[in-house]
Design a protein around this nucleic acid. Sequence first.
DNA 1: TGTATTTTAATAGTAATACTATCATAAATA
DNA 2: TATTTATGATAGTATTACTATTAAAATACA
Lengths: 241, 241
Amino acid sequence: MHLELSTFSGSIKGGIFLKDPATSTLGWSILTNSIEIIDEVGFEQFTFRKLATKMQSTEASIYRYFENKHKLLLYLSSWYWSWAEYNLALRNANLSSPQQKLLHAIEQLASPTKVNYNGMDIGRLYQVIVRESSKAYLIKEVDQLNRNGLFYNYKKFVSILSQLILEIKSGYAYPHMLVTTIIEGIHHQRFFSEHLPSLTDMPLEGESLADFYYSLAMAAINQKTDDLHTSSTILQTLTAE
Amino acid sequence: MHLELSTFSGSIKGGIFLKDPATSTLGWSILTNSIEIIDEVGFEQFTFRKLATKMQSTEASIYRYFENKHKLLLYLSSWYWSWAEYNLALRNANLSSPQQKLLHAIEQLASPTKVNYNGMDIGRLYQVIVRESSKAYLIKEVDQLNRNGLFYNYKKFVSILSQLILEIKSGYAYPHMLVTTIIEGIHHQRFFSEHLPSLTDMPLEGESLADFYYSLAMAAINQKTDDLHTSSTILQTLTAE
DNA sequence: TGTATTTTAATAGTAATACTATCATAAATA
DNA sequence: TATTTATGATAGTATTACTATTAAAATACA
């Protein structure tokens, strides 16, 4: 297991960074320290000045790696999805059942392995992803970033899960919607259960969270054709009751 | 309809504002203009200076209504949920079927009425909600804000839909999770279909989006007990295949 | 109608943020 | 050893996110 882990290296698109932080100790320090600060103070309060101070480096040095803190967040997010993809492939390598593969994927999304990878605290990165990752794309510049392929890693992960869905139910019409609903749903429920519990149900641990979304996926996939209506036919059915 | 509309007034918790913007023309102007600017430049680039310039007023005047731009966003979000609740109640007033009520709720979430309420462009507010509303709670200060009851309106709306779910299927264990999954899901799909289409399926209009989530809700609710497993039993089932 | 009170505008100012630029030095590499 | 590259140190600018003060305008109220 450890051997495989050490062979992993996130493949992040240039364009996110000015200089790849994965290629130097200072760069790697930017990543690990930024995770800690963002986790502690939140992305809004996170500044390159705070990061530089913590790292005992300078703002100027950080700016040589990233244009701004948003690109750094995008890097962390991309790295996470690259890691998630790698880890999932490892875990599912010698399985054939797409159901089981999907279950593993959902379990991993709901409670990731809390390992430490070269000083990078994956559990903490997960915390950051849960609270901050949607801010990487819910922005005005999203189209421009997307044109440059900067959401590649997230899209790739979604695409892999969508493929799994189609293996389970060939011809299912909404694999991508289902997958993104599950992913973002898991993140939201994780956040809600900790901070806004009345928006969830009971203290949900990673396991039961995974159960809920796996069941949801299966229910959606295995829905009888009779259950699928358009708004108008649904309304007719209901009015006829 | 117009009469009813004019009787609506959002009930927003004090604590979000310093002085209720709904009680003065300047305050109302802050709301309508901020929606336009946030829609145009995004919440990150939105500043009270830009707002003051557009309104032909001053920063100091705006600061008398809101502590900061985040509280203003929270106000817009609360106002939206208050409006959504009011509108839904109106639409469902003389219906009895909880299924139909839920369908109406989901349809409204997926494509809100594009009316203009006292100069407030609801369609534009909806755009802002889709892209920005999660930033109102995905922050480090969430617990403190929540202790002061500042997420009341969103919680209330979620609670109403959860009640509907329980009317449809008494005893269903996860009404809140299902509801927030649907709400945030709708917003995400709306955003994705416009900006990251590979994360959705086909060009989804409001109607088909509503269909997808209504079907999802029904599938989750009407799931046979046999379909509900814990992770361990799921794994056993799968391994046995 | 006049006076008191509240609301807004105008202006100024401060600390922090988000950068850019320059130069020196250390480390790596050729 | 020479040369490139990476980092550090320092400085500086425009913008942001406010706070404070005073004056004018609008409103309430007696």
